[in-house]
Design a binder for these strands. Structure first.
Lengths: 241, 241
DNA sequence: TCTAAAGCGAGAGCACTGTTCTCGCACAGA
DNA sequence: TCTGTGCGAGAACAGTGCTCTCGCTTTAGA
């Protein structure tokens, strides 16, 4: 039975996380101080250790929240587009991720910049981290099942990479419900690779913009990101791209 | 006149930077402590402030060193390839950057992960940061001047992005010596865009590998990066890709 | 060559950090 | 109603970046 104490506890965890999230948004991960968070909440610094074992655990909670925020922004934007307009859905995901990143730069940096706590991502973060790439995979899957994917002009995939992709896809699909698994196993590895590379191009481009690597090189940031979206959509073979 | 004092001073700066670089490589940017550095050098913590105004300035020196290390690794690998093998040179750059990143993960994270000091990159870092993209640009330029670039299957570049690219290229070329400027102004903006996107794909892919985003998704990392190199080389239009 | 100025290293000190420990208090469950 | 557990507060520790002052050394100029 979830007693009163558990309820209060969950509320406290949420409260601490929310204040920490705001501090992160304002000052960045390096400037996130558990003492400052507790100060704002009017509690002793040591009290937070009843809820989070250490600062890294607090950061991990923020990492999960950030992945969910980005994934949710992408999902929402994509779902607003006509489901038969596959290119439109693909571009919507790109736009939404960029918009989310610009609105939450520190949270973006936390999840797609240098991993700050340690090197091994905690287990809890792996599932929300895959949301966007799964969304892109679903779009490719829908296009393949519908009008079909257009032939693409890509270098042949070497055997080693091909075998690796097939093996990985099967292992991931094995842990999924059948409906989602079919989304993965149905497509040829070339398509999976194109989706992965499109996903990488999305975050690579947004990251380069956000971290200043395009300063003095590209000014039309939005137009550029959309061009990257169109180019990767064509590489995947989305019809009409 | 460069007095003895200036010489000693330069040596001290180099010594501090070197120890700091080693600490960075071992413990990462977050674990870089100026006190620890001075301790190892047997000097008082306050003494370092005679050479660097603050910790961020020390980090900036390390950022410059890291950019130079990555750029030098790329340049060296590229120069070892037959200059007429444009695809080979392109792939060599990709391989070299990845190898450097794997060998220097914390330094890679410092320059291509989240910007840790502030948001505006110090002036000194902008020049070394462009080395790799300039190298890729030169390869495309050499191919265009030699056998010519193959036609590529890309979505048309919208007018806004096109105009921005042309304007940016001219502004950058205006600050260069004529020989290097020709490398930029000669090519159509489509080629420049393909090079920029290839550069982005390179660091996006390497970053995703290094920061764990490919965990459980791609295992054949080297083969994948080379596939990305081939794909981007084809998008640029390098003959034979 | 002598002197004033500038550069320098050491040390103390400040305000801050994450984290641990101990102490009472309050409350949930038997 | 009693008791053990969970909890918050506060002190304490080791560490951080950084500033300031104090003498000493080296430099530059008259």
């Amino acid at each position: 039975m979830a007693g009163i104490r558990d309820r209060v506890r969950a509320e406290y965890v949420a409260e601490i996380t929310e204040v920490a999230r705001r501090h992160l948004a304002e000052r960045g991960a390096a400037g996130l101080s558990v003492r400052a968070v507790t100060r704002e909440l009017g509690m002793a610094a040591s009290a937070v250790y009843r809820y989070f074992p250490n600062r890294d655990a607090l950061l991990t909670a923020l990492i999960v929240a950030a992945y969910e925020g980005a994934g949710e922004a992408a999902r929402e934007a994509e779902s607003a587009v006509d489901r038969h307009d596959h290119v439109g859905r693909w571009i919507a995901v790109f736009r939404a991720v960029r918009a989310w990143a610009l609105a939450h730069p520190h949270e973006y940096a936390l999840i797609y910049g240098s991993p700050v706590p340690g090197y091994a991502a905690p287990r809890d973060t792996t599932e929300p981290a895959t949301r966007v790439v799964l969304l892109l995979t679903r779009i490719a899957h829908d296009a393949r099942r519908g009008p079909g994917l257009a032939p693409t002009d890509r270098p042949p995939v070497p055997a080693e990479l091909r075998a690796d992709l097939v093996a990985r896809i099967e292992r991931i699909a094995a842990d999924m419900d059948p409906e989602r698994a079919a989304m993965l196993t149905g497509a040829p590895p070339e398509t999976a690779l194109a989706v992965i590379d499109g996903w990488t191009a999305l975050f690579g481009t947004v990251g380069f913009e956000l971290f200043g690597h395009y300063d003095n090189i590209i000014d039309a940031r939005e137009a550029h990101l959309e061009q990257v979206a169109r180019t990767t959509a064509r590489t995947v073979g989305l019809p009409g791209a």
